[in-house]
Write a protein that binds this DNA or RNA. Sequence first.
DNA 1: TTGAAAGCGGTACCAT
DNA 2: ATGGTACCGCTTTCAA
Lengths: 335, 335
Amino acid sequence: MTMRVTAYDVAERAGVTQPTVSRALSGSPLVSDATRERVVKAAQELGYVINLNATRLRSGRTQVLAVVLIGREGERPTATNPFYFSLLGAIGAAAAEREYDLLVSFQHSADNFYADYQDARQADGMIVIGTTRNDEAWQYFRSRDHEGKAWVCWGAPDDDLRWVRSDNERGGQLAADYLYNQGRRKPVFVGSLEPGQRQFTERYEGFAEAWRKLGVEPHLVETDPALAREEQGARAIDALLSEGKDFDGLFAASDLIALGALDGLAKAGIAVPDAVSVVGFDGIRTGAYSSPPLTTIESDFDLAGRMLVKNVLGRIEGEPPESRRVPVHLVVRGS
Amino acid sequence: MTMRVTAYDVAERAGVTQPTVSRALSGSPLVSDATRERVVKAAQELGYVINLNATRLRSGRTQVLAVVLIGREGERPTATNPFYFSLLGAIGAAAAEREYDLLVSFQHSADNFYADYQDARQADGMIVIGTTRNDEAWQYFRSRDHEGKAWVCWGAPDDDLRWVRSDNERGGQLAADYLYNQGRRKPVFVGSLEPGQRQFTERYEGFAEAWRKLGVEPHLVETDPALAREEQGARAIDALLSEGKDFDGLFAASDLIALGALDGLAKAGIAVPDAVSVVGFDGIRTGAYSSPPLTTIESDFDLAGRMLVKNVLGRIEGEPPESRRVPVHLVVRGS
DNA sequence: TTGAAAGCGGTACCAT
DNA sequence: ATGGTACCGCTTTCAA
């Protein structure tokens, strides 16, 4: 077990002092080219790797962003909504562009809530994403949102917290337009409009508003947000059929709900898209393989990741405030 | 901007010295109950949060595990195979159980390969998961696998590296048994048997061996692993049809390939499962929504995560070596 | 059981 | 442009 190589070892080999090594390797303009070269060479020869804990302790900065994925209570992290996983990927890419690492944690119940990343100097900021259904979780995070905390949410249940989200109203409009252009005139919206489901409400409003302009009031099937999303979709179909409601176009508040609806329609023998057109929201990969493939409203994931990162970093580095609405577009597949 | 609260402040308030605060809060048995109580109270009142960088610098341990997700070159992290994302969730849960945090990074090309987490004291160990297709990446990681490095791979292309993986042969057997029990007698395997695709080869071998015992030699359709997986599946169907091959049971090396095959079969007007039964491997969520829902071989995600974590920690903490094969089971859906 | 003192390995400030 | 020195906030001996 050889001793760890420190900046002192490098300094000795390069014939300079340790602080000079620090400057040389961190790219300080104060170091002469010749010196830097010698230092870099010495560092390479010794296989020197900087100890980031020392750097962080001294500088007070970590170059780390914490990402918290809030799940439903009792849900295993493996079952995390694929949309959030994709978002995580996008955040990772955006963070890497700005030389930040990601500290990821899956939180779902009071015994593992944790938000002290900044105080503990583990991260410079935090991005919270995940289901709005976990009231306890959001209550917890809301209580920790003090002055000086750099964080941003995706999918926050209300506007207390600083957020970035999809341009949901626009998405609703796009869905309405699509259904209208498909010749549909009896539209239904499936989803929960609970106050906590801010994003869903926005989608509904964009959808309803667009239809009203066309002289149609869309039918609303409110679902129980406590249920699994797929289940919500399936039950909505049951409800529609049992009350004998006539409909030919369906917009679901999320892809998972739409997939459940697709299932329900198939079981009831209703052809999609012949009898009913279906549009989801999220653009999850799974939708591409459903039967028929799900037409959906998709947010630009990469952009969403970049906006989230930019917003936290804005709070950290005092950058100018950034746009908070992620543009959406229609993805026409088979439904 | 108030000053940060340190252990010295807590010490003063509790009427002890700073090292005693450290002992009290870290649960050292050397501290008297009375003292610990006073310290804890003082810490709470001051809102003290320990600075983990100091802890880590001094102790040399981080309580962090790095997770590297290797993607295909040029692939956006958002498009990461959902199986790996689920695995990430499982690793997160398993790590949390042992009080480790996760540092996640998405790596795909030479300009962002990085494995020095231990040297930089960012993490105590590393778990590498992801496609075996990225030769450059694996070459890089192999070159960094020196004595004293604590890490474990999922999906490593060969046995040089320490690995944990599914019980692939058993999975192949299960697939064969299932098809046989469905009355199928003309089996096909679809996937790549390149040396780098270790896991696929194992699946094929388990499958072929089981059939041979039944007196049947399964037909093999080798795919081009450079293509997207779905594409591999679709093309395999094209190939089978164009050469007029007769088959009634298909086992794909992965779910994504199976989904592609399902697509191909649908386009060719071949009924699943009436004319052909299809079995995949991985248990990705998407398979549950395909048409028909994909029957598959699933590894126990949670267990896989726990085994990966246990294996790295074994290298860190000198725990006894653990089993490296994750049990699999058949998930019968509609194909 | 507690205190005193050293030290982990860097960065930042002040000289020169 | 470089060196000297303090210091970030803990943990870990060693003494008492």
